[in-house]
């Protein structure tokens, strides 16, 4: 009898593996193997037809660190993350509070906020071109009305990155809003009543009651925004191409450029490893933080 049970258990285990196998195979081929291969290739020099590639240790990483473009791009990406994350979260929260309040035309307001989420980033960039075009664009028309000189928003180093950042915030805030919206709907209205009876004003209620209750959502949104600050670079292709003079270049765009414009795959691989390392750290933080809330069982 015991043997029967043992046999059955083993058969089920085999069945389980077989069910998971196709997905695991593809995942290994396009996520795990490439991650390892990227590391491996980042240790070799770039091969040419005359000089085959040779083992170089961490030379490629050293090259990156001594390349001034690396510093520029890394700082750009830090600014990109440092601005888009908190500002998007702020807008998302404001949108959610408003979209949850009893205001007229609420469903219109809600979809207006959410619409950018479903547009391709490429299309979003095209839409914003119309805002940024010097002299003729919407922004310059407005500032020109007040007598300001036309500005080449995308073409000058001081404003290029900021212009990119604005588009990203516009694109992702409405997406983050829905998570806050969902969280707000789980908060019992009695809390607000209780706070009012205690004499807490609206601001106090938001700061002392709502924000702490929304903390898990904020962490979730924060992690997503962090991933987005690596991932969302499509608009660079339309708006600035990383220019002028690298002023708006972000890491993933740089990797693309190194690999597919300059065919310098070893350095692209080294840069990819640095990104993976960062994402890995984010993953660990997320698992640590979220463990308390959701149990992966």
């Amino acid at each position: 009898m015991n043997e029967m049970a043992q046999l059955k258990k083993r058969r089920l285990a085999l069945y389980g593996w077989m069910l998971a196998a196709p997905a695991l195979a593809l995942m290994s081929l396009f996520a795990f193997y490439p991650a390892v291969a990227t590391f491996w290739h980042s240790l070799f020099t770039r091969g040419t037809t005359r000089r085959p590639s040779v083992f170089a240790g961490f030379e490629n990483y050293g090259d990156l660190f001594s390349d001034p473009t690396f510093a520029t791009v890394a700082i750009n990406n830090l600014i990109y993350a440092g601005v888009t994350i908190p500002v998007s979260i702020f807008f998302a929260l404001a949108m959610a509070l408003w979209a949850n309040a009893h205001i007229p035309a609420r469903s219109f307001v809600r979809s207006a906020y959410f619409t950018p989420t479903i547009l391709p980033m490429i299309a979003a960039a095209n839409l914003w071109l119309f805002f940024y075009t010097p002299d003729l664009g919407v922004i310059d028309q407005i500032t020109g009305f007040f007598g300001a000189e036309p500005t080449n928003w995308l073409g000058q180093p001081q404003t290029a990155l900021a212009s990119i950042i604005v588009v990203t915030i516009w694109k992702e805030s409405g997406f983050f809003m829905i998570f806050y919206l969902a969280a707000l709907q789980t908060i019992p209205p009695d809390l607000r009543e209780a706070a009012r009876i205690e004499g807490a004003g609206r601001w106090t209620y938001t700061r002392r009651v709502l924000l702490p209750l929304l903390m898990p959502t904020t962490i979730f949104v924060f992690v997503n925004a962090m991933i987005n600050s690596v991932k969302l670079i499509d608009h660079l292709f339309i708006l600035t191409k990383g220019g002028p003079n690298n002023a708006s270049k972000l890491i993933l765009y740089w990797i693309w450029e190194m690999a597919f414009s300059y065919f310098d795959t070893p350095h692209a691989a080294a840069m990819t490893m640095l990104v993976l390392l960062t994402l890995g750290i984010v993953a660990v933080i997320q698992f640590r933080l979220v463990e308390k809330r959701t149990h992966y069982r």
């Binding site: 795990f32 193997y33 690596v230 993953a283 698992f287």
Partner: peptide, 18 residues
């Protein structure tokens, strides 16, 4: 779950080769 963080976008170089 880790694959949620190894973005396909980041692995473009190797995936292109594959």
């Amino acid at each position: 779950l880790l694959q949620l963080f190894i973005l396909p976008e980041v692995l473009i170089v190797e995936n292109y080769a594959i």
